[in-house]
């Protein structure tokens, strides 16, 4: 198992290096001088040159790459062109919204999807299964911003249980902040839960057809016991893959929902960064997202090995 973890870690580091090179190269080849852009059309060449110096855009490619990576390793992500504040602070403030929102949505989606998927699989072809398949189809098809607006209409405007948007900050206390994130989390969780429930259903169904389930039944386990003791753990392997992918998607992919609810999240930050050609911000946020994807993948790999002893020996 230790060997497995070490090889996975090595592969994680290698992926990070490759990703950083790719991101840096892409940003390098984008046309347009950020300094000229920021200072406007009538800027003096001297002023542009001075800004380039300040932004660290001078020097050879290798120097710039190394100083960028070196900075990130020491927590210095550079300074945003437009906001004129350290990117690290900017990202940290946005992460304080996006990370809890992502986890919230993910917990909701998983907590709903896995039992629902199992119930559907256990009663394959029966009423519960048909209802689940229909509902999840709808959940995938409905645009989540529309669903978000319906949620606002019902819970904020009519029932007045939640506010329609905005984020009070964690300084306002844990519960008020969580309350502000509840409707966005539900809106985000709906399509994810629908996908996950379907994956769980088909995975459990496949596992139920395996010979070892028949063996378990021959031992005297009831259908339900066989599902819980033998099918579930085996069925969780594809489910975890999807959960890992969903985490990465939600972290930055919530931009529409952030806009609907006026949340200062990462998605909006990167969108603004791109429109304002704030390349330092874009570069850093993209790198952060890549980092999170790779780390989550690593965690999923470790979880695979924890579930499946056959993987532990492999490097």
């Amino acid at each position: 198992m230790a060997r497995y973890v070490v090889t996975r870690l090595a592969s994680l580091c290698l992926s990070l290096v490759v990703a950083s090179l790719v991101i840096f190269a892409v940003i390098e080849v984008i046309p347009g001088d950020p300094a000229a852009f920021m200072l406007g059309l009538n800027a003096e060449p001297e002023a542009v040159a001075a800004l380039r110096e300040e932004l660290g855009l001078t020097g050879s490619v290798a120097e710039r790459y190394l100083s960028w990576v070196g900075g990130m390793l020491t927590g210095d992500f550079g300074t945003s062109y437009t906001y004129r504040v350290p990117v690290a602070d900017l990202v940290a403030a946005r992460l304080a919204v996006s990370l809890p929102l992502t986890l919230y949505a993910l917990v909701l989606s998983t907590a709903i999807a896995i039992p629902v998927g199992m119930i559907a699989a256990a009663g394959r072809g029966r009423a519960a299964d048909i209802a689940v398949m229909g509902t999840t189809q709808l959940g995938i098809a409905v645009p989540n911003f529309w669903f978000a607006m319906i949620l606002v209409l019902i819970f904020a405007i009519n029932l007045r249980i939640f506010s329609a948007g905005g984020f009070p900050g964690w300084e306002a206390g844990f519960w008020p902040a969580m309350k502000a994130l509840t409707l966005p989390a539900i809106a985000l969780a709906l399509p994810q839960a629908s996908i996950l429930a379907r994956v769980t259903r088909s995975s459990v169904l496949e596992t139920l057809g395996q010979d070892y389930i028949r063996t378990a039944r021959a031992k005297g386990l009831s259908r339900r016991q066989a599902v819980i003791r033998h099918a579930l753990r085996n069925a969780m392997i594809p489910v975890m893959t999807i959960i890992g992918l969903q985490f990465s998607f939600l972290l930055a992919g919530a931009i529409i929902i952030e806009n609907v609810f006026f949340l200062p999240g990462l998605g909006r930050l990167i969108f603004q960064g791109i429109t304002q050609r704030d390349l330092v911000v874009v570069e850093s946020v993209v790198m952060l997202l890549v980092f999170s994807v790779i780390v989550v993948t690593f965690l999923v790999d470790i979880a695979y090995a924890a579930i499946d002893p056959r993987l532990r020996r492999r490097g």
Partner: peptide
């Protein structure tokens, strides 16, 4: 079915043809 569950494995045991897949791989 309840009584069959109590009987299977207790009064009547069964083994199958394909031993490679008859056991739960994660236990």
């Amino acid at each position: 079915e309840r009584e069959m569950c109590a009987l299977r494995g207790n009064e009547v045991g069964m083994i199958f043809q394909e031993p490679m897949t008859a056991l739960n791989p994660v236990q």
